[in-house]
């Protein structure tokens, strides 16, 4: 079995995995980072979304071995201790989650959305951009509110960092 090396949430990691191992399996089973979930087999639900080299991707449709040397961020890499990322905070503040299963993928997608589309996101944009993330609990109403608020808050974060 090949040895795979990556930087995950800022930490260099390695692990043996068969070539047929999916990135999500490597993250969950080898690295035991179980915040990234699997909700479907056909790349639709988005529960498995992580960032690879800065872009949101579906880790259930990516081979681990193809991510050799990549920088991967999972849901566990967003917060610093109890210091939540503004998008995480927005999901809590606006009740953008119920059972929590789709939530890691939703939040990772939302952060990527802001990275690409900016901080002022209309309801229409958010709903369209969430095409690859399915939630069964919330009816999306509060997720949309959370993403809009989180996007604005991320602007604050960017400013604070300046």
């Amino acid at each position: 079995m090949p040895m795979i090396h990556m930087t995950v949430n800022g930490k260099a990691v390695k692990g043996h995995a068969e070539p047929r191992t999916l990135l999500v399996e490597f993250i969950r089973d080898t690295l035991r980072l179980t915040g990234t979930h699997v909700g479907c087999d056909t790349s639709q639900c988005g529960a498995c979304v992580v960032h690879v080299d800065g872009h949101a991707i579906k880790s259930c449709t990516t081979l681990a071995v193809a991510c050799e040397g990549a920088h991967v961020t999972t849901i566990e890499g967003l917060a610093h201790g109890t210091d939540l990322h503004p998008m995480q905070e927005a999901f809590r503040e606006h009740h953008g989650l119920q059972c929590g299963y789709c939530t890691p993928g939703m939040i990772m997608s939302a952060v990527d959305m802001v990275n690409r589309k900016g901080h002022d996101l209309s309801e229409h944009t958010i709903r369209e951009e969430l095409e690859g993330n399915i939630c069964r609990c919330t009816g999306y109403h509060n997720i949309v509110k959370a993403v809009a608020a989180g996007a604005k808050a991320m602007q604050g974060m960017a400013k604070a960092a300046e």
């Binding site: 035991r32 990234t36 849901i75 939540l84 009740h95």
Partner: peptide
């Protein structure tokens, strides 16, 4: 009231059955 359970879910620390090894 904001939900007490949310912290673990938004940080990926929920423990679902598939997470049990």
């Amino acid at each position: 009231v904001k939900r007490k359970e949310d912290f673990r879910f938004i940080t990926g620390k929920g423990q679902y059955t598939a997470d049990v090894n």
